[in-house]
C-alpha cells in the first residue's frame, strides 16, 4: 500500500486538482453555453417565420414545436425542428409554418455535415426559398429533371441526397404537427371566443 501511494500520489493529486478545475470551468461556463444554444434556436425561429419576435414551446405535446408571436403577442406562425438522413449525416432542419399551419413560410438548416461546395449548398437561400408557400396537407415531392408539380421542390443539381434530406425533414412530422397546431388553435378559440387568430 505504501509503495502504491509512493508511485501514484502525483497522479492522484493531479486528477483531483484537474477535476476540481474542470468542475469550476463547467460551473462558470455552463449557463453561457446553454444560453448560446437557446439564442441560436430562437434566432433561427424568428428567421423562418417572418414577423416573429418571440417564441414559446407548446406545452403538453410530445413533439418540440414552437408558437411564434409578433410584438403584439399575436400568433404569426409555428416552427419545429426535424431531421432526415443526408449524404454524410442527419440534416437538422427548422421548418417554419404560417399561423394556420397550412403552408411553409421558411426553412433553415440547423445542423449539417454535408460536403462543402456540393451538398452544403442546401443551406443557401436559393434552395431554401424553394420551400416557401408549399402546402402541408400532402407530402412535398422532390422534383428531378423535367418533373413538375406546383407543390414540389426542384432538386439541387449535384446534391440529390442533401436536397432529399431537407424535403424528407419537412415531410416526416407533417401529420403530427398539423394535428398539434389544430389542437392548439382550437384551445385559443375556446379561451377567447371570437378573437381566434385569423
Amino acid at each position: 500500500m505504501k509503495s502504491f501511494l509512493q508511485q501514484t500520489w502525483l497522479v492522484i493529486v493531479l486528477a483531483v486538482g484537474f477535476g476540481a478545475a474542470l468542475a469550476g470551468v463547467e460551473h462558470a461556463l455552463a449557463p453561457r453555453i446553454a444560453r448560446n444554444a437557446v439564442d441560436k434556436l430562437h434566432g433561427a425561429i424568428n428567421e423562418v417565420v417572418p414577423g416573429g419576435v418571440a417564441s414559446a414551446r407548446a406545452q403538453g405535446v410530445d413533439l418540440e414545436i414552437y408558437r411564434v408571436t409578433d410584438a403584439a403577442g399575436r400568433t404569426v406562425g409555428w416552427a419545429y425542428p426535424s431531421s432526415a438522413l443526408g449524404y454524410a449525416d442527419n440534416v437538422v432542419v427548422l421548418v417554419g409554418l404560417d399561423a394556420g399551419g397550412q403552408q411553409i413560410v421558411g426553412v433553415q438548416i440547423l445542423k449539417s455535415n454535408e460536403t462543402p461546395g456540393l451538398g452544403d449548398r442546401v443551406k443557401g437561400e436559393q434552395f431554401r426559398d424553394r420551400f416557401k408557400g408549399k402546402r402541408t396537407d400532402a407530402p412535398i415531392p422532390l422534383l428531378r429533371g423535367s418533373e413538375s408539380d406546383p407543390n414540389g421542390v426542384d432538386v439541387l443539381t449535384g446534391a440529390t441526397y442533401s436536397s432529399r434530406a431537407v424535403v424528407n425533414a419537412c415531410n416526416v412530422k407533417r401529420e403530427k404537427v398539423s394535428a398539434i397546431i389544430a389542437a392548439e388553435l382550437a384551445k385559443d378559440t375556446a379561451a377567447t371566443p371570437g378573437q381566434g387568430t385569423p
Binding site: F18, A21, L22, V25, E26, L29, R32, I33, N36, A37, K40
Partner: peptide, 15 residues
C-alpha cells in the same frame, strides 16, 4: 484537462 478547458471556452465564447 487543458483541452477540455479550451473546448468549453470555445463553446461559450465562439459558439
Amino acid at each position: 484537462a487543458f483541452v477540455t478547458i479550451a473546448d468549453r471556452f470555445l463553446a461559450a465564447f465562439l459558439p
